[in-house]
Simulated scan of single mutants.
Amino acid sequence: MTAPLKVALFGLGSMGYGMAQSILRAGHSAYGFDVNADAVARFRAEGGSDGTLTDIAADLDAVVVVVLNAAQAETVLFGTDGIVPHLKPGAVVICCPTVQPEFARQMEARCNATDVQYLDAPISGGAAKAAQGQLSIMAAGTPQAFDAARPVLDACAATVFELGDVAGPGSAMKAVNQLLAGVHIAAMAEAVTFGMTQGVDPETFLKVIPQCAGTSWMLENRAPHIAAGDYTPHSAVDIWPKDLGIVLDIARCAKFGAPIAAAALQQYLAASGMGHGREDDAAVAKVYARNAGLTLPEKKA
């Protein structure tokens, strides 16, 4: 049995909080950090360890970064109060945000320069699977990084895809996944609202389409939010201008045309511009509804 690790997790949002719970449940000492003090207090009340970064940094075995973007990840690792310079040799950084592959390679080089391991480890599966320790992790890094990260990966993931022995391939695969996921959510919203123009209400849509060839995981996960009129954010609209923006930046560098991803991005930008950016990403349906003069279901009292 692996000895318990001391793990600090940065980012207690819907995904990070579930991962922190899974790490704690696996028997490790887990420290949670977030700009949201309520999330930190809640995690500590559930058994998370108490301690300042100054006090714990030198004893940490692993750092898990589950923030929003590359800029935030770099701040956590190498900013004014960055954690990496204070880690012991052999500690591992497990970096989970959607970022460009080149950013992952840069972070790996900077970590390795201080004898800290780095694992390029984007995640997929949603908040529920994060809380269950059932994520899919698209990982790339040296064998040493995988060895150091293994107990944390085992705590958080049902499946770990080992995609290469240097950073970059994990983030590349995540970009492929996000292209599909973002397009599928927008396509789901288009299909639901198109059906409404033909008298197919969202409840009926959900009875039929998941049993047919046109279904997708995103459709089955997000369409119920529209049918229920509940846009409590599990994954917010504003995630997609970032993630599909990364996809299109990578595509542009590769001289690759991605017109379907670009069209989906415009719908998320429109939804955000309408004021729905912090709602669940199923709220992209509101763009279609507005344009077609449709009334979407309202949340039941």
Rank of each mutant, 00 (worst) to 15 (best):
A258H: 02
S216N: 00
A301S: 15
V65I: 15
A251K: 01
A149G: 11
A292Y: 07
D281I: 06
K129R: 15
C212D: 00
C156K: 05
T2A: 10
G11P: 05
G27S: 11
R252P: 05
A228Y: 06
G214I: 01
Q267E: 04
D34E: 08
A149M: 09
R222M: 12
K174L: 04
A91E: 08
A258M: 15
D61G: 12
A139F: 06
G133S: 01
T193E: 00
A140Q: 00
G32F: 11
A227V: 02
A140K: 12
R222H: 15
D249T: 11
V93R: 11
I123R: 10
D147K: 14
V63E: 13
S136M: 06
A261D: 04
D61N: 14
T204A: 07
P202L: 02
I239A: 13
D59C: 07
A131K: 11
K242L: 14
L296F: 03
L77Q: 08
G32W: 08
L5V: 03
A227E: 14
Y288F: 15
F78L: 08
D280F: 06
A57H: 06
V40W: 05
A45W: 01
L180S: 07
T80M: 11
D38W: 01
K88I: 02
I239T: 15
T159C: 08
S22P: 05
A191D: 08
R150N: 10
T80S: 15
G273N: 10
V64M: 14
M107Y: 09
E203D: 15
P4R: 07
G82M: 04
F256L: 14
E108V: 11
G214K: 00
G164W: 04
T215G: 00
A104N: 07
L244V: 11
T2F: 04
M173C: 13
G141Q: 05
A186W: 09
N221M: 11
A8V: 03
A109P: 13
A91S: 13
A45V: 00
T54W: 00
K286L: 12
G126V: 10
E74C: 12
N112K: 14
L219E: 06
V35P: 10
D34H: 03
E162M: 01
H86A: 15
Y231V: 04
V67M: 14
L5T: 04
T215V: 02
P169G: 04
A130C: 09
A191N: 08
I137S: 06
Q100Y: 13
K286I: 00
K129N: 13
V116L: 13
A213T: 08
H86F: 07
G293N: 03
L53G: 09
G245W: 08
V237Y: 10
P297D: 04
N177A: 05
S171Q: 03
P169C: 06
I209G: 01
Q266F: 02
D81K: 10
S29P: 09
V152W: 01
L179V: 05
G275E: 12
F161N: 11
Y118S: 09
D55I: 05
M138Y: 12
Q117K: 12
P259A: 00
L180K: 00
E190M: 03
P143R: 07
A128I: 14
A187F: 08
R252W: 03
Q72L: 15
